[in-house]
């Protein structure tokens, strides 16, 4: 079947098999390997991307379901090598070690920040319940998301 998508502002059209999962469409068809496959069972959140502005686990969605949708992956954040404020906050707060969970954490955090105008620590902790990190113990991730939200010069992703 044919799907047309917009990913990180670029339009694409592809002939795909209906059973192709969105995460493999992004990684294997578009070559956007910043999005990771961790558990492959909807549990870990490593595959989180934004579909029409909302976080989803791309291992649990068909590329066919994303036909006509606008998506954002981690690759859209840094512009010409300059980190997005949220990425910078992850760096500053030592919110990653191996980094495998990080792109999913950042994309989930973008959605949380958008949905909670007066973001609190509890919002972040509850909001990240679907994202697992095996390294950091979460505290620095929570700090980074709060810092990243405070440091937004503009609402996250407004330019995209």
């Amino acid at each position: 079947m044919r799907v047309s998508t917009t990913v990180n502002g670029r339009s694409y059209e592809h002939e795909i098999e209906p059973r192709l999962l969105l995460v493999y469409y992004l990684r294997d068809v578009l070559g956007l390997t910043g999005t990771k496959v961790g558990c492959d069972t909807s549990s870990c959140g490593a595959c989180t991307v934004l579909v029409d502005g909302e976080s989803v686990k791309s291992c649990t969605m068909l590329a066919a379901q994303a036909d006509g949708c606008a998506m954002t992956t981690i690759e859209a954040l840094a512009v010409d090598g300059a980190l997005d404020p949220l990425q910078e906050a992850f760096h500053d707060n030592h919110a990653l070690q191996c980094g495998f969970c990080t792109s999913g954490m950042v994309m989930a955090a973008m959605s949380i920040i958008r949905e909670h105008p007066g973001l609190t620590e509890a919002d972040v902790r509850e909001g990240l319940e679907g994202n697992l990190c095996r390294c950091t113990g979460y505290h620095n991730i929570v700090k980074a998301v709060l810092a990243g939200a405070g440091r937004q010069a503009h609402p996250v992703g407004a330019a995209r």
Binding site: S42, G45, T48, V51, E54, S55, V56, K57, T60, M61, A108, S111, I112, E115, G127, E129, G130, N131
Partner: peptide
């Protein structure tokens, strides 16, 4: 139910 990602779908 689940987590925010699950609730978005």
């Amino acid at each position: 139910v689940g987590d925010p990602q699950v609730r978005h779908r």
